[in-house]
């Protein structure tokens, strides 16, 4: 036993200890927290209001840290408010996609048989749909708004989660404690949501985070193509405007580099976090293995 058992588990739950051992993932967590903080307190942190206007095309200065854009909006303010939209789209899409994937995966893994066959066939069909082109078509033909993007992305991004959850459920449902729950006369519903679901959390959370990251990137690419919501500016939208309204031609790097950097750094921080969580999933399966009694020699005070 390399480490005392309780602290190992605590580290797993709070993911603190794990993060400490991998500085990169701790850095990821801190960076993501900063982004979240910025998004939540945009109103306080932004130097100006989102609709305040100044002289257009100004270079960075003391009063406008990142200059102003074609409309005379302060770019730093825009960047700070843009984090709201980008994160919101990412997180809500991931919630929808993971939620769907979770429920379908749980049901199909636990009940198996015909339910499983049907649900997996549906999943296969969804896996075949080329996602970005479909989203583009939807965005072109429907009135584009962020809610639409969230809905469409969410309804397309759940397929891989289903596969992962299902395989985990198939593994867990054969384990001893599920049988003993059955012998105690617990209902199927209870077993599914109270015994199996908590055990899948460790694969769901990393998957959730990766979905946030990929949804953010998808949103940025859609916005850059001009299919985003014109009424609220995300980071992708900012790059789009910089491209469309002379930012690139005038070499105003302070206009298009910061949003690009923000997207990259934010996605990177999320990915780093999910890596460390995946690591603790491995650790978790180690604990599972350690439960086999002949190897179990833990604290017995």
């Amino acid at each position: 036993m390399k480490q005392k058992a309780p602290s190992r588990f605590k580290g797993l739950m709070k993911f603190d200890q794990e993060a400490g051992r991998f500085p990169a993932s701790r850095a990821g967590m801190i960076v993501f927290m900063i982004f979240l903080f910025i998004a939540l307190f945009a109103g306080i942190l932004a130097p100006y209001g989102p609709n305040e206007r100044f002289a257009p095309f100004e270079s960075p200065s003391h009063s406008h840290f990142l200059g102003t854009n074609d409309m005379g909006h302060d770019i730093l303010t825009e960047l700070i408010y843009g984090s709201r939209v980008s994160l919101l789209v990412g997180i809500l899409t991931a919630c929808l996609a993971t939620g769907l994937g979770l429920v379908i995966g749980l049901v199909s893994g636990y009940f198996r048989g015909i339910t499983d066959e049907v649900l997996m066939a549906v999943t296969d069909i969804f896996l075949m749909i080329p996602r970005i082109p479909l989203v583009i078509i939807c965005a072109v033909f429907l009135r584009s708004s962020y809610w639409l993007i969230i809905l469409v992305l969410g309804l397309l991004w759940w397929t891989t989660t289903v596969r992962i959850v299902r395989s985990k459920v198939l593994q867990i449902r054969e384990m001893g404690f599920i049988v003993s729950a059955e012998t105690l006369g617990f209902s199927k519903f209870h077993i599914l949501f109270s015994e199996i679901l908590p055990n899948t959390v460790f694969v769901i959370i990393p998957k959730f985070m990766l979905t946030v990251a990929s949804a953010m990137i998808a949103e940025a690419s859609l916005s850059f193509l001009g299919l985003g919501d014109p009424s609220s500016k995300s980071w992708g939208m900012m790059i789009r405007y910089a491209f469309e309204r002379g930012g690139f031609i005038r070499d105003m790097w302070w206009w298009y580099i910061p949003p690009g950097l923000c997207i990259t750094v934010c996605v990177l921080s999320i990915v780093l976090m999910s890596f460390s969580l995946e690591n603790s999933v491995d650790r978790f399966t180690d604990i599972f293995r350690g439960l086999i009694p002949s190897f179990t020699r833990m604290r017995r005070d």
Binding site: G176, F177, V179, A181, L184, P198, N199, L291, I292, P293
Partner: peptide, 16 residues
Amino acid sequence: IAIVLQNPGLALNPIK
């Protein structure tokens, strides 16, 4: 009717 199964380590939910 209660049944106590073999293999105590695996009969308990590891995260409860």
